[in-house]
């Protein structure tokens, strides 16, 4: 059933959110720190563990998860639509520089790291 796939993701989100909140208290910021990353990490480990033991998800369960994955860009679009863009325009330069320099810099690291393998 599709809802089982959705519940599977929900379980890891709740787990990650709880651990993230512990981390948030620990760091002193409060809130959920790194919970999304923790949830993804535990889900990857669990799915790969199950698959290695030959326990694949049923197609309909999988559909529930894939449905959520397919919604991720549309949700990001909705998120973009509710941000304070008017305020951010004043910070347009920082966005262009931060994104731009990070991209170009990373590209020139490619040959350096590629050599590591040789």
């Amino acid at each position: 059933m599709e809802i089982i796939g959705m519940g599977f993701v929900a379980f890891f989100m709740l787990l990650g959110s709880f651990l993230g909140r512990i981390l948030g208290q620990f760091i002193g910021t409060g809130g959920d720190v790194g919970g999304v990353g923790l949830a993804m990490l535990f889900m990857v480990l669990t799915v790969n563990y199950l698959e290695n033991r030959g326990r694949m998800f049923k197609p309909r369960t999988e559909n529930g998860i894939k449905f959520l994955s397919a919604l991720y860009i549309p949700i990001i679009v909705a998120m973009a639509a509710r941000l304070n863009v008017v305020g951010a325009i004043n910070g347009g330069l920082v966005a262009i520089l931060a994104g731009g320099v990070a991209t170009i810099g990373a590209m020139f690291l490619v040959p350096l790291l590629s050599k590591l393998k040789k």
């Binding site: 809130g31 919970g35 509710r82 863009v85 951010a88 910070g91 262009i96 931060a98 991209t103």
Partner: peptide, 30 residues
């Protein structure tokens, strides 16, 4: 995700999205 965890304003989150978009688009183009 980071901005929400650290409780910054929507304006700063919008800047962070814009920076990420600049990266994504520049990567495709360059």
């Amino acid at each position: 995700v980071t901005g929400t965890a650290l409780g910054v304003s929507s304006e700063i989150i919008a800047i962070s999205v814009a920076a990420g978009l600049v990266k994504s688009i520049m990567t495709m183009v360059i």
